[in-house]
């Protein structure tokens, strides 16, 4: 299928991009890697009147560690972050989760921030951001603000981004070295039926689950005795809700939250401190 017609703009600077967004707002769409967006354009699920291409903006092309965060600019592809030598040492959860994002061929072009912007409830990057307690940096001609993961993603394909705002970077806290990730999908690279990530935090383990509710769910498990973990996970699985669809039943999803959840908690705790 072919997209409906739209105008195309490739600004040279971030300021130009923000001016365009300020002018066109909701009628415009931002494209970086386009690995989700172009498919939606092709299927005519989206019909923007203007496409703003930020893929070549130098100002958004950075991976840096600053003030306790790994900051990833909006032009950075998933493959580039995965290949970044410091990833395993700084944010091991991303090194564990990124190979599960799409396929080799889509990671080559798909961006980290683009995946957060798309806000698919089953995708791995929003899940990782939630599990780590990361943040999203938004810019507009009006100014800049930083939102925690839980406030940024509002629901199915929905975020708190205002129409004139651009996601300029994602910030992942560094230092969480005891982490684990697991996912069940029909085929590696397909959308997750359920994905879970565990991060050891002071006094317990923070667990996030994707693929069940309309956004990643997060729970902190403090009592790590096996029976207490099972009980907490059962409560969490029911809280997430979830429904039957062509991929799996809600009951199977709850089962996965319980079993994969217990596994990743165990695996995260087994990591050397």
């Amino acid at each position: 299928m072919k997209p409906r017609a739209f105008d195309y703009a490739r600004p040279e600077t971030l300021a130009e991009a923000l001016d365009l967004l300020g002018e066109f707002g909701d009628a415009a769409r931002v494209v970086a890697g386009g690995q989700s967006l172009t498919a939606m354009l092709n299927l005519r699920l989206l019909e923007p009147s203007l496409l703003i291409d930020i893929a070549r903006l130098r100002e958004l092309d950075f991976i840096r560690v600053e003030k306790g965060f790994l900051e990833v600019g909006a032009a950075v592809t998933q493959d580039r972050l995965l290949a970044w030598p410091g990833l395993g040492a700084h944010v091991p959860l991303l090194a564990q989760a990124l190979p599960w994002v799409g396929h080799f061929q889509t990671r080559n072009r798909g961006t980290v921030c683009g995946s957060l912007a798309h806000a698919d409830p089953s995708s791995e990057l929003p899940l990782s951001l939630a599990a780590l307690g990361g943040e999203v940096v938004l810019r507009s001609a009006r100014g800049s603000r930083t939102l925690p993961a839980g406030e940024f993603q509002r629901g199915l394909l929905t975020t708190a981004r205002a129409p004139d705002e651009l996601i300029v970077a994602a910030r992942f806290p560094v230092g969480a070295t005891r982490t684990a990730f697991r996912e069940i999908a029909r085929r590696h690279g397909d959308f997750a039926i359920v994905a879970v990530a565990a991060v050891v935090v002071p006094g317990g383990v923070r667990l996030a689950a994707g693929g069940v509710a309309d956004r990643p769910g997060v729970v902190v498990v403090n009592d790590l005795a096996p029976a207490a973990v099972a009980e907490r996970l059962n409560g969490f699985a029911w809280e997430l809700g979830g429904s039957d669809d062509i991929h799996a039943t809600a009951r199977y999803r709850r089962d996965l939250v319980r079993s994969l959840g217990a596994r990743v908690i165990e695996e995260a705790l087994a990591c050397a401190a």
Partner: peptide, 22 residues
């Protein structure tokens, strides 16, 4: 729509789905 992979080409040295690119 980016599922089958038969449109894959190399752009600046990396494999890319040409149907997910303008």
């Amino acid at each position: 729509h980016g599922v089958c992979g038969c449109c894959t080409v190399m752009v600046d040295g990396v494999a890319t789905r040409s149907c997910l690119m303008l």
